[in-house]
């Protein structure tokens, strides 16, 4: 029954229905309020596992808000509350007995502006595993190396692990943040406009990295750059003023959108 509901959600937004992938995150009539202002309006969608899903839309349309709801970073904002259902791997995210710490371990996040800690490269990547209990120096070194390799940064920093992370370039810092997020072995990686503060070359590298990471991780990326969404993602959701207008395979959204508003946005008539 659960699968049927999810397929329904899928089917209502997708042209061809031959997907049978499982859904990692599902939202059903999910809303987010800042005080009395409804920033996300009754969104219903399903994020497929192991794929890259992009969320696009004009600024202020609620895409970052929706993204930050998945790892409950919105809890930091006073007056922010959620309504409806948002499930991660079948469990309610906003349930009363949810362990937020466990959630955030399984759902990692990369921010718009690279924000490495003012510590060494090693300590940055090791921060996550350390707080989750890993103490052995040897195991930590292994985890750090593995994460930096996965983030395509190892070759560049392997000789300067003890140096301050703030000395890296912008692109390197962002890859470091990705490595840091990967170090706790999450299942989902949320990326909030990860390349908007970077130069084109670093942007390209990170987009390549996203391609390498898919399959191992489910990636949800919020971007205002449509070309990036088209390059990088398998599925795309278009949000406008808090509402989900359309959701489907990226190729289909960009070549043959079902909704007029989607078409207007993609062709640049507004936004």
């Amino acid at each position: 029954m659960e699968m049927a509901v999810e397929s329904d959600i899928f089917r209502s937004h997708v042209a061809d229905a031959d997907d049978d992938g499982t859904l990692h995150v599902t939202a059903q009539d999910f809303s987010i309020f800042y005080g009395s202002n409804e920033a996300v309006r009754e969104v219903t969608l399903g994020i497929p596992a192991g794929q890259v899903t992009a969320i696009i839309g004009p600024s202020g349309c609620g895409k970052s808000t929706f993204l930050r709801a998945i790892n409950r970073m919105n809890d930091l904002i006073p007056g922010c509350r959620a309504a409806g259902k948002l499930c991660f791997d079948g469990e309610h995210i906003y349930g009363s007995q949810v362990d937020v710490v466990a959630l955030r371990r399984r759902v990692g996040m990369v921010f718009q502006k690279p924000n490495p800690f003012p510590k060494s490269v090693f300590d940055n990547v090791a921060y996550g595993p350390r707080i989750h209990g890993l103490r052995s120096r040897g195991k930590l070194a292994q985890v750090v190396e593995r994460s930096l390799v996965r983030a395509a940064l190892w070759e560049e920093v392997k000789d300067r692990l003890a140096q301050n992370a703030l000395g890296l370039s912008g692109g390197q810092q962002q890859r470091l943040c990705i490595a840091r997020a990967l170090a706790v072995d999450p299942e989902i990686l949320l990326m909030d406009e990860p390349t908007s503060a970077l130069d084109p070359r670093s942007t390209g590298r990170i987009e390549d990295l996203i391609g390498e990471l898919r399959g191992t991780y489910t990636i949800i990326i919020v971007t205002h750059n449509m070309q990036q969404a088209a390059r990088v993602s398998d599925y795309t959701a278009f949000l406008y003023e808090g509402e989900l207008i359309e959701f489907g395979r990226t190729k289909q959204i960009f070549t043959n959108p079902q909704e007029k508003r989607t078409e207007d946005y993609i062709t640049g008539r507004f936004g």
């Binding site: 970073m73 930091l76 502006k113 707080i131």
Partner: peptide, 19 residues
């Protein structure tokens, strides 16, 4: 941003403050 990064990695509030 430091606080947000630490919290997003699963640190508790107190841990974030101290570390």
């Amino acid at each position: 941003t430091y606080k947000e990064a630490a919290l997003s990695l699963g640190a508790s509030r107190w841990r974030t403050v101290v570390t």
